[in-house]
Amino acid sequence: MALNICATELTKAITSNCLTQPNGGVEEKAWLFQRRNHNVTFKSGTTNIIESITNLPTKKSYPFIMIKRVMNAGMEEVVAVDRATRFKHKVSAQQFEFSAADNLNVDNLEDVFIVVERKDKPADGDGTFIGFGVKNGLYKSSGTRMTNDTNGVRVFELASMDEGGTEPHSEYTVMAVPSEGQSVYAATLAMLVATETEPK
């Protein structure tokens, strides 16, 4: 039986200076996907670049529209001496609406993945759209709403499940394959918007 080599290697230099310093924050629209209802295509030979997200019949994604810094997304490394390093993806957000249907909708927010758009956009579109929880899904890890606090809005956090529900990559870069004359940004945005409607 051949040994399965898990050792990873550095492949390029790391530059963290004034030239590469990014700006934080995400744009005011993100996309929520019920994990089991969407197929994801990874770029050939890679496991962290998503080229396409498609809907199963009669299913669609749901946009999350927000203002300013209502949403925060990122990850936490899970390091152990006897396990490979994994990543706990985390997304925190606020629910402003409070009708019965809106509450039920967020109550049922489980096993989803999310794609957000970075405010900082590189010219080649690499890293603009990023996905969290794509393989194992995000589940609510905390939630609170008090009528006298923060305008009475509901604050909740979605995260990868502990004990094996974490992700193999810190984040997934979503980059659709552009058609001729189209930019990666435009192609990816169009692909994400297209998931908002059910396939014919």
Binding site: R36, N37, N39, V40, T41, F42, E51, T54, K135
Partner: peptide, 9 residues
């Protein structure tokens, strides 16, 4: 789509 397609189910 060319590449590895993850069909969640």
């Amino acid at each position: 789509h060319k590449g590895n397609v993850l069909i969640q189910r």
